[in-house]
Design a protein around this nucleic acid. Structure first.
Length: 782
DNA sequence: GTAGGGTTAG
């Protein structure tokens, strides 16, 4: 229910309660206070010396209940010598009668006795009869009867009578009757406020088109009854609130209405304008939102920060920083005070683009760091945004510092989100223990963890090789009543797929279903990918069909994953099936699809198909990338056709302008070394240096193997030094080659000094080689 | 304001 209507319906309830015992002047005062004007001719000036006609008539009517002195009544009301009393008097008299029955009786008498039948006398008397009836139980039926009678007697409705009827019928869901009353009303009395009521009734009943039709009439440039602010409120609330009934009205239509309203100088209030701006932005029409806001600014609509905030959010999302700044400048110019949300948006977007220091500057500014007029106290959300921003760039210690600052500020205690951001920060920094401690801390502080806390820790543990710890933690939390969701299961399923524990991954999927947790598309995608990469294409297909049953469809990446899986397991017919399915679903193959197929055909020796596919991909507007060339080069290498591989390698940088990367060099260097063309491999390494392509561990491993074959010790030493220079860590393959080779030729001293270059970080070593490998290495060295 | 997945060449 809209605010204005709540007020006026409350007021009318108040009126109904007060009226019977209230003298007319208080009643008219209340009437004056109500949102709607009273549409009566002015009351005659009070007669000071003698009792008024009203008083006399009431006395007369009350003394004799069933037997009125009609002569006297006639004399008082319709004197032959003086003009008839003003209609207002009859209204007052009728109102003061105790019941509908009495009022109706009086009305009938007036109708029978009034000398002039088409005077407003009858309309006003009837109005008071309606008022009586409206206060009785089952009022809508009584009013309907009375209305029908008045219609058959051709008594015109007064403005107030029509208002009362339309409103009462509307409340009783009798929309057609409301409409009928309106249509019965003399066009000159179809005032704005009556139309407002009817429009409101129509909207509430979902009769959107009828309401808009009525509204259109009011919005005409020279409309007799133009819209007022109440009209705006009724219309915008009906069109923009969430639980609206009837057909949806699209944003363009609303924008059209807004501008028509604006021509009548009626503007949506801040709430509705903000709603409209958000809706336009959400449906991707930020430009239109910008126009609407600026149009209203120019026309003098009242603008508050909220509406600007809605637009700022959308601009930030679209990375339109220039326009964001323009809007901020305009806000300043128009004296629109930014609020905590405005600052929050700025801080958020700066953080999302990792410009955390600038975000901190804005934060200090709102704290009054620079005295530029306004102080806005940051709230929990401001703090959380910043803490998250800091954590996302690895500055979790500073985030922790902000928590201290938060605690010192009244009404700003760290909450679940605060802890979640920090826990995620520590997890991403591989500090799982610290994250776990924060989790204990939040429990101690009475801040309840939620499913996001759970997921953050589960994922953190999974990503740092503690899958069992993650499962344990999850079970512990379930025991405490904290249920997991699709995200929890995705993290675990993904982790088990990554360590090739497909059984456990599938088990978790079943567990998820048993727990009553419905999988979303991402769970399916994860599982399909894991199964495909593990070569379990039958199970991947099974999950795919389950996914479709659940109403999700594979996206381009899932198709690519499946196509790759089918190619690798030599189920080309299945791969084709997928391509067909993609086509039917309207999903075009992308570069990855082509690369996958090119890789497959070239690896199986069908180079002509591979080249045909490459031509087709270009025709489709896709650009062959370093991966495309890599697939061909790799296949030619595997096929023993090193000349062709080198030819493509030379072509790709000169003709196609795709510079080779480390992977490409590695493929070639590896193949050349295997073919004993170590000289050529070495020249490629020089080429890398020239082109600025960094060699990695694989590059050196391939070279060492080649050099070992040739027993080119001096070259190996040279490369070992270069490896150290590049801060390129040896892995266990490097160590195995070098240990075997160098200890065989009695060069363990050189090897020891090489290894010592890397013994700076025990944890890095641990990560690289693992404990077992290191033990073996040490054994070999001693 | 906070959490999840997947692709192609080594």
């Amino acid at each position: 229910m809209s605010a204005a209507l709540t007020v006026s319906s409350k007021q009318s309830k108040l009126l109904r309660f007060l009226r019977p015992q209230t003298p007319p002047n208080l009643s008219s005062l209340l009437r004056y206070l109500s949102a709607e004007p009273d549409h009566h001719p002015p009351a005659p000036p009070p007669q000071n010396d003698s009792p008024s006609v009203v008083t006399l008539v009431i006395e007369l009517l009350q003394t004799s209940d069933n037997d009125w002195n009609e002569d006297k009544l006639h004399q008082l009301l319709f004197p032959t010598t003086s003009p008839p009393p003003p209609p207002h008097n009859l209204l007052q008299i009728t109102r003061l009668l105790g019941s509908t029955a009495k009022a109706l009786k009086f009305f009938n008498w007036v109708q029978a006795n009034s000398p002039c039948q088409d005077s407003p006398l009858l309309s006003f008397t009837l109005e008071a009869v309606f008022e009586h009836a409206s206060r009785e139980p089952n009022s809508h039926n009584k009013l309907l009867d009375l209305f029908k009678t008045s219609k058959s007697h051709k008594i015109p409705l007064s403005v107030n009578a029509a208002t009362l009827l339309i409103r009462c019928f509307g409340r009783s869901q009798m929309v057609d009757e409301s409409f009928l009353v309106y249509n019965e009303l003399c066009p000159s009395r179809r005032l704005t406020h009556i139309r407002n009521i009817l429009i409101d009734v129509l909207f509430r009943k979902g009769r959107v088109d009828d309401a808009l039709h009525l509204l259109d009439e009011m919005l005409q440039p020279n409309a007799e009854f133009p819209p007022n602010s109440n009209t705006g409120h009724i219309v915008f609330s009906a069109l923009l609130k969430r639980d609206k009934v009837g057909r949806a009205v699209d944003e363009e239509e609303i924008v059209r209405l807004v501008s028509k309203f604006a021509e009548h100088e009626v503007f949506p209030n801040s709430i509705w304008l903000t709603q409209l701006i958000s809706r336009l932005c959400r449906s991707g029409r930020t430009g239109r939102a910008w126009d609407v806001l600026h149009g209203l600014m120019k026309l003098g609509g009242v603008m508050e920060a909220a509406s600007c905030n809605a637009l700022l959010t959308a601009l930030g999302r679209a990375r339109e920083f220039k326009r964001m700044n323009t809007l901020l400048a305009e806000m300043k110019e128009m004296d629109i005070q930014p609020n905590v949300v405005t600052f929050g948006i700025l801080i958020n977007h700066l953080c999302k683009f990792r410009r955390v220091d600038e975000a901190l500057e804005v934060f200090e500014k709102m704290n009054g760091g620079e005295s530029n007029g306004f102080l806005v106290e940051p709230d929990v959300i401001t703090y959380n945004t910043l803490i998250d921003g800091l954590c996302k760039v690895g500055r979790q210690e500073e985030g922790l510092g902000l928590v201290e600052r938060m605690r010192s500020q009244p009404r700003c205690m760290p909450n679940t989100v605060t802890y979640n951001c920090l826990i995620d920060g520590y997890c991403k920094a591989s500090m799982i223990e610290a994250a776990r401690e924060l989790f204990d801390q939040m429990n101690k502080d009475g801040v309840p963890p939620n499913v996001i806390t759970l997921n953050t820790l589960v994922d953190g543990m999974c990503k740092h090789g503690r899958i069992n710890g993650a499962v344990e933690f999850f079970n512990e939390m379930q025991g405490k009543g904290l249920k997991g969701n699709a995200v929890t299961y995705t993290a675990l399923i993904n982790a088990f797929c990554n360590v090739n524990n497909i059984e456990k991954a599938m088990e978790l999927f079943d567990e998820m279903l048993e727990a009553g947790c419905s999988p979303d598309a991402i769970v399916y995608y994860t599982l399909i990918s894991g199964l495909s990469q593990a070569g379990k294409l039958d199970r991947a297909s099974f999950v795919l069909s389950k996914m479709k049953e659940a109403g999700f469809s594979p996206d381009i990446v899932s198709f690519n994953v499946l196509i790759n899986g089918f190619c690798r397991t030599n189920k080309l017919d299945k791969a084709y099936e997928m391509l067909k399915e993609m086509e039917n679903a309207g999903i075009k193959p992308d570069g990855v699809t082509y690369n996958t197929l090119i890789s497959h055909f070239s690896k199986t020796g069908d180079f002509s198909t591979a080249h045909r596919l490459m031509k087709k991909m270009v025709k489709e507007g896709l650009v062959p990338t370093v991966v495309t060339y890599g697939a061909l080069i790799h296949a030619y290498c595997l096929n023993g056709n090193l000349d062709e591989a080198m030819k493509i390698f030379r072509d790709m940088s000169s003709t196609s302008k795709v510079p080779p990367n480390t992977v490409i060099y590695n493929i070639l260097i590896n193949s050349l070394c295997r073919k004993n063309q170590v000289d050529l491999a070495l020249s490629l390494m020089d080429d890398m240096k020239v082109k600025g392509v960094k060699p990695n561990t694989n590059t050196f491993n391939a070279m060492f193997k080649g050099l070992q074959e040739k027993n080119w010790l001096s070259k190996a030493f040279e490369l070992m030094d270069r490896m150290t220079e590049h801060a390129c860590n040896p892995d266990y393959i490097t160590m195995e080659i070098l240990t075997e080779w160098l200890s065989a030729v009695g060069e363990t001293a050189k090897l020891k000094s090489f290894v010592q270059g890397y013994e700076v970080s025990a944890s890095a070593e641990h990560r690289l080689w693992g404990n077992g490998r290191k033990q073996r290495l040490l054994q070999l060295l001693h």
